[in-house]
């Protein structure tokens, strides 16, 4: 299953609801394009909702990191919401769990952008 991305706005935060796999050839490029598009439009607060992402590979991890650093370089922020067990597992093993701001509650996540 490829990656699908739905975008919505809430209280000044752009939320990307991701569903599917973030892997080489399936979701990595879509995610990269979506993030670049938002940042080029001037969006500063970006929340990636990953509750329906059931698989991520090293390429997908690379895209998450690139999203994080690209945003930071543009004075924007990318945060993560609702990790599935598998995605959390991979983020923990690679120590990226400590890099990202990660939330389990959407309202809390939105409130964290100021």
């Amino acid at each position: 299953m490829a990656l699908s991305i739905a975008t919505r706005q809430l209280d000044g935060v752009t939320i990307l609801d991701l569903s599917g796999r973030i892997t080489l050839g399936e979701g990595s490029v879509q995610l990269r394009d979506a993030i670049r598009d938002l940042i080029s439009k001037g969006d500063k607060n970006i929340l990636l909702s990953l509750g329906e992402v059931n698989y991520i590979d090293s390429s997908g991890l690379g895209e998450l990191v690139s999203a994080f650093t690209t945003a930071k370089n543009q004075n924007a922020e990318v945060k993560l919401l609702n990790l599935t067990k598998k995605v959390k597992d991979v983020l923990q093993v690679t120590k990226l769990y400590t890099v990202f701001d990660i939330y389990d509650d959407e309202a809390h996540a939105i409130g964290s952008f100021k």
Partner: peptide, 21 residues
């Protein structure tokens, strides 16, 4: 890939994941 200078690199985690798992 866990070294501080590599943690934010976009690539280089494949072999590490293989070894980890």
């Amino acid at each position: 890939p866990l070294a501080p200078e590599n943690l934010l690199r976009g690539t280089g985690r494949g072999i590490f994941l293989i070894r980890s798992f």
